[in-house]
C-alpha cells in the first residue's frame, strides 16, 4: 500500500504563556513538537503498513525547521519524508494550504490512503484534512480511531460525539485520525541514526504548477482581523472548612448566593 501521512510542526500549546504586560502570547522558547494527532495518525499508518505491506511517506508544509518533525516521523516508521516549503506560501489559510499540499501530493504520485491528524493544536480548525480530500477528489472519513484494509476495501472505526460508527470505504481515501487506543511508538537508537542520515527533500513552488492567485495571503479567503488574549478567569474562591462535610455545606451556600444553583 502506498500510504501518505500529512504532519505539522506546532508549538507545544501546553507550554504557551501570556505576557502580562503586552497581553500577547510569548512564543519564544516554546518548544516545537509534532502535532499530537499527527503522531497518532503516523502510528496508525505505520501499523497499517506493517500489516499490509507498502511504504509510508510523510509530508509537511512549513518552514525549514519543520524538517525536525519529518525526521521524527522517519525515526518511527516513515520510509521517506518531504517538506513543502517556499516563502510565497506564507500567509496561507486552510484553503490555500490544502491547495498547495494537494499539488505537492499529486507530484509525488498516487496514494492509497492519506492520513491526517484530526486537527493541529495551534490552529485547531480541523479543516485541512477534508479540504485536501476535496482538492484530490477522494473520499474522506474523519475522527478515525481504527483502520483495517483488505484488498481495496478499508474498514474504519469513527469516533464522534457520543457514538462509534463502523464505516466502509474504498482506496483511495483520506482519513483524519483522533486519539487512538494505542500510543505512538518510541523511536529506537538505530531508527534515529538512520533518520538522521536520510535526506528530506524540499518541494518548492518551482517544482509545482500552482495558480499563484490561490496561494499565500492572496489565495486565502479568510483573513485574520485581530488577535487578542482571552480574558483570564478571575481568582476563584477557596473553600477549606474543618471537615469535608462543612466544606460541602459552605460550597452549596456560596453557589446559592451566586445563583449558580
Amino acid at each position: 500500500m502506498n500510504i501518505l501521512v500529512c504532519v505539522k510542526q506546532v508549538p507545544d500549546t501546553t507550554e504557551i504563556k501570556i505576557d502580562p504586560h503586552s497581553n500577547t502570547l510569548i512564543r519564544t522558547g516554546v518548544p516545537s513538537i509534532l502535532n499530537p494527532f499527527d503522531a497518532y495518525a503516523l502510528e496508525m499508518a505505520v501499523r497499517l503498513k506493517e500489516k499490509n505491506g507498502g511504504t509510508v511517506t510523510a509530508i509537511s508544509m512549513g518552514p525549514e525547521q519543520a524538517k525536525n518533525v519529518l525526521k521524527e516521523c522517519l525515526s518511527v516508521g516513515a520510509d521517506q519524508a518531504f517538506l513543502v516549503s517556499d516563502r510565497i506560501f506564507g500567509g496561507s489559510d486552510t484553503l490555500a494550504t490544502s491547495y498547495i499540499l494537494s499539488a505537492a501530493i499529486c507530484k509525488l504520485g498516487e496514494f492509497d490512503v492519506i492520513f491526517c491528524g484530526k486537527q493541529a493544536i495551534d490552529g485547531d480548525t480541523a479543516q485541512v484534512g477534508p479540504e485536501l480530500a476535496e482538492h484530490l477528489d477522494i473520499a474522506q472519513v474523519t475522527y478515525v480511531v481504527e483502520v483495517e484494509a483488505t484488498d481495496r476495501i478499508l474498514t474504519v472505526l469513527r469516533e464522534i460525539d457520543e457514538r462509534y460508527e463502523k464505516i466502509e470505504t474504498q482506496i483511495p481515501t483520506l482519513l483524519t485520525v483522533n486519539k487512538t487506543a494505542f500510543e505512538p511508538r518510541y523511536p529506537t537508537v538505530k531508527s534515529k541514526l538512520t533518520a538522521n542520515r536520510t535526506t528530506i527533500n524540499t518541494i518548492t513552488s518551482a517544482d509545482l504548477d500552482l495558480d499563484l492567485t490561490r496561494i499565500g495571503l492572496k489565495g486565502s479567503p479568510t483573513k485574520v482581523k485581530k488577535t487578542f488574549v482571552p480574558v483570564q478567569r478571575k481568582k476563584g474562591l477557596r473553600i477549606m472548612e474543618n471537615s469535608g462535610r462543612q466544606s460541602a455545606i459552605r460550597l452549596v451556600e456560596v453557589l446559592l448566593d451566586a445563583k449558580i444553583i
Binding site: 508549538p11 500549546t13 501570556i18 479568510t222 483573513k223 488577535t227 488574549v229 482571552p230
Partner: peptide, 20 residues
C-alpha cells in the same frame, strides 16, 4: 466577524471573509 479560539484556547482570533 467570526471570533474563535486558537493555540488550545490561549489566543482568540477575529476572522473575516471579505472576498468570498
Amino acid at each position: 466577524a467570526w471570533t474563535r479560539p486558537a493555540f488550545g484556547g490561549n489566543l482568540m482570533a477575529t476572522i473575516s471573509c471579505p472576498d468570498c
